[in-house]
Design a protein around this nucleic acid. Structure first.
Length: 290
DNA sequence: CCGTTAACCTGAGAGC
DNA sequence: TGCTCTCAGGTTAACG
């Protein structure tokens, strides 16, 4: 589910609610997420929340004395803010759980007047405790810059692309070079930049590098403004859906008309590394010898 | 080094 | 109704 914009939306929708609050109790209904949830997450109990951060697709809660909980939402993880009055959660339907909305509520963080519930049907997400600022730094040492960061600039991309014999789509999805992009936004960026997802990195020219940078920032910025993309059921912590899916240029638009003015092309769905890839073969010329 | 495949999971939606 | 099949906002190990 969540790429950078969706995690940013969760962060924003959570910030005012949990800042300066304390968690009194953690209920673990199912610790079998992607990694087993360890008991040490309880180290943050009764410690004041000092910050909510986001690094690429990770949500990070900072506690007093610089201890942290980090969340990764995998494909289907969501974090819900629920007031005590609504503890029955009758009005909330979670991702992929219309009939049994509470079935996949795995972890509950109990505050004084509310709780945060981590729901994740597929359990690809995870939660970890980090004990110091230095450990946090080390944890993210290996991931690349976000497209919104100034480190993601022409020289950085130019240098890193020039010798790479792999296609640009897989490169942009590789979190160690660029972090925060997922399948939706990479499809959108390459369409707007009019670059074939199959094109080899080393053949990406200067103009195209500039376009990738430009459209990465534009697409992510717009998606955040629109509350993220809810192609199934992504919701922020208040249960509100995003609306950027209404503005997709290519993603999920198989067999539909290309939206670029003057183009009569049709959007095709192809597979790259077994993941859905949407292209207009007019706008994004695909050559076999790329 | 590179792409693909499978694996980790559950559920929605399509087609029969 | 129900069965089977495909697909899904992610990541990563193993293989060729």
């Amino acid at each position: 589910m969540p790429e950078l914009p969706e995690v940013e939306i969760v962060k924003q929708s959570l910030q005012n609610k949990v800042l300066h609050r304390k968690i009194n109790k953690i209920k673990i209904a199912n610790k079998n997420l992607r990694f087993k949830v360890k008991k040490n997450i309880e180290n943050i109990l009764k410690k004041r929340i000092t910050k909510i951060l986001r690094i690429s697709k990770y949500l990070i809660i900072e506690f007093k004395n610089l201890e942290y909980l980090i969340f990764h939402f995998g494909m289907s993880g969501t974090l819900h803010f629920i007031k005590n009055k609504n503890l029955k959660d009758t009005n909330l339907s979670f991702y992929h759980s219309k009939s049994l909305p509470k079935k996949h509520n795995h972890i509950e963080f109990m505050f004084d007047n509310f709780k945060l519930v981590y729901n994740d049907p597929r359990r690809f997400g995870f939660i970890e405790y980090i004990s110091s600022k230095n450990d946090l730094k080390n944890y993210f040492f290996k991931i690349g810059p976000e497209p919104l960061n100034k480190k993601f600039n022409f020289l950085y991309l130019k240098n890193i692309l020039k010798n790479k014999n792999r296609n640009i789509k897989n490169f942009l999805l590789d979190q160690k070079y660029v972090s925060g992009l997922g399948n939706i936004y990479v499809n959108e960026i390459l369409f707007l930049a009019r670059i074939s997802p199959n094109k080899l990195c080393k053949k990406i020219d200067n103009t195209e590098i500039t376009k990738i940078i430009k459209f990465s920032k534009i697409v992510l910025g717009k998606a955040i403004k629109k509350g993220g993309s809810s192609i199934r059921d992504f919701k922020n912590s208040e249960g509100i859906k995003g609306s950027f899916q209404a503005e997709f240029s290519v993603y999920n638009r198989k067999n539909k008309k290309c939206l670029r003015k003057g183009c009569n092309g049709v959007i095709h769905r192809i597979l790259i590394s077994n993941r859905s890839t949407f292209v207009c073969q007019n706008c994004q010329i695909i050559k076999k010898n790329y």
